[in-house]
Amino acid sequence: MSTVSYMALALFIFLLYRSYQAYQGKKKAGEILLSGSSNGGYYFLGIYPFPLIWVMSTEREWSYLIIGCLIMIAAGYISGVYLGESGLKINGRFIAKDQILHYRIIEGTVNEVEFQVRGKDDFRVKFTKKTSSSGLETVLNQFLHGDTSTAGS
């Protein structure tokens, strides 16, 4: 195997491990209330297409193509965001509900929320799916405060 093959395999194994952590984080989040994607996080995920591009340009083996596709699937799963009854799964890690101090719905955007977490930098999330017919602010208030008022966070 070539050096690039080892690099692609190492990246695949690393993303497989991070996918397992993301799966565990999603399980810890409990019943999913909202899901979407985050702004920022794993910048290294931008490199995952390179093994696939290299394989497609050299047409060496189908195994590389399969590994490249699996890397893309794993990267997509890791970068998903899930707000559950017990906390938030973001970029492969779990943040417990009691660690989330505050949220703010970003003006002029559709379903984009900024969270403030104890001891960490603020981060933005764009929610694209919800499991109830309630509005975004109502679901966030229920999650964080246990109430249904929309007076703000």
Score class of each variant (00 low, 15 high):
50 F>I: 10
91 N>Y: 08
71 I>M: 14
82 Y>R: 14
53 I>Y: 12
80 G>E: 15
61 E>N: 14
93 R>G: 04
60 R>C: 13
120 K>P: 07
84 G>M: 05
100 I>P: 03
111 N>S: 14
75 A>G: 14
55 V>K: 15
95 I>C: 13
89 K>H: 09
89 K>V: 09
95 I>W: 02
127 F>S: 00
85 E>K: 10
29 A>N: 06
70 L>C: 08
94 F>V: 12
60 R>S: 15
24 Q>L: 13
114 E>Q: 03
61 E>S: 09
15 L>A: 05
108 G>C: 06
123 F>A: 13
129 K>D: 07
132 S>W: 07
94 F>W: 08
47 I>G: 04
14 F>W: 07
56 M>E: 05
19 S>H: 05
37 S>L: 14
96 A>S: 14
74 A>N: 12
74 A>F: 02
100 I>K: 03
102 H>W: 08
42 Y>H: 11
14 F>P: 10
90 I>G: 05
67 I>H: 09
115 F>P: 02
26 K>F: 14
88 L>R: 09
57 S>E: 06
51 P>M: 13
97 K>P: 00
41 G>P: 00
109 T>L: 08
108 G>M: 05
31 E>Q: 13
127 F>H: 06
113 V>W: 06
41 G>D: 00
32 I>H: 00
121 D>P: 03
58 T>W: 02
105 I>K: 02
68 G>N: 09
121 D>R: 13
107 E>W: 04
60 R>D: 15
56 M>C: 01
37 S>R: 15
69 C>Q: 01
88 L>T: 05
43 Y>T: 03
92 G>A: 10
